[in-house]
Amino acid sequence: MAHRRCLQSLVRHATALISLKKPPTLSTFEPLTSTPNPAVTAPNLEPTWFTTWSHFRHFSSSKSDDSENEEEVEESSDGEAEEDDEAAADLGRDYSPEEKEAEAAAIGYKVVGPLQRSDRVFKDYEPVFAVVQIGSHQFKVSNGDSIFTERLKFCEVNDKLILNKVLLLGSPTQTVIGRPILPDAAVHAVVEEHALDAKVIIFKKKRRKNYRRTKGHRQELTKLRITDIQGIEKPEIKTDGKPLKAAIKEPEKVATTA
């Protein structure tokens, strides 16, 4: 919170400085003015330079970009009130669908819906990988992998998810690097398990003070199975011997049973 306050005051200073020159155009770029010494940089800023920079720094998909800006604006207007709201929401635990979606988007996923029996999402391995961010962890995943993340809220076991914070895509022939995110790439996953991790013992002790505290903790985890990676062209699989075999075997079976 201290950081935020500091940034806020900086932003205020900067806007005060800038508002002497061109208030309406620059107000939307508040987050970008958090340079260490705004007094030096602010005077020689021109609106055109700003716009090019903001365009060049492709932070994320347009949606989350907007939300970030909104947040900043809100904060600069009344920081204290927003804090209170957050605390109330944490206590109440009542989320509307929009809030759920927003929180999920902040973590980096989107719930699509339950997996149906008819869905054929589990495919054979493709030589493609992606680096995807969930919360504050990054995973290098490819098709068929399973990853353990911190417990994801608002999703049930057997839900399909779309992980949209893709940082990098790669295949044997090419690599696509996001700056820092590839907006039109997506990784599809299925929730397999909500489980507790093994117990961790927290042991506190002070020497010569007759003080010992033992506490157990079990972290909640979510197991995801990656089903698909989209946004990169997939090379043809050379070793398709196995599926062929299965395809040959199946008709044989049908013939004998019939």
């Binding site: 995943v141 399973s146 353990f148």
Partner: peptide, 18 residues
């Protein structure tokens, strides 16, 4: 919601065959 596997400390949070 569990898979019924034994609860062990995870060696890695990323399991892959490739």
């Amino acid at each position: 919601n569990a898979l019924g596997r034994k609860v062990v400390k995870l060696k890695t949070r990323h399991v892959t065959k490739h």
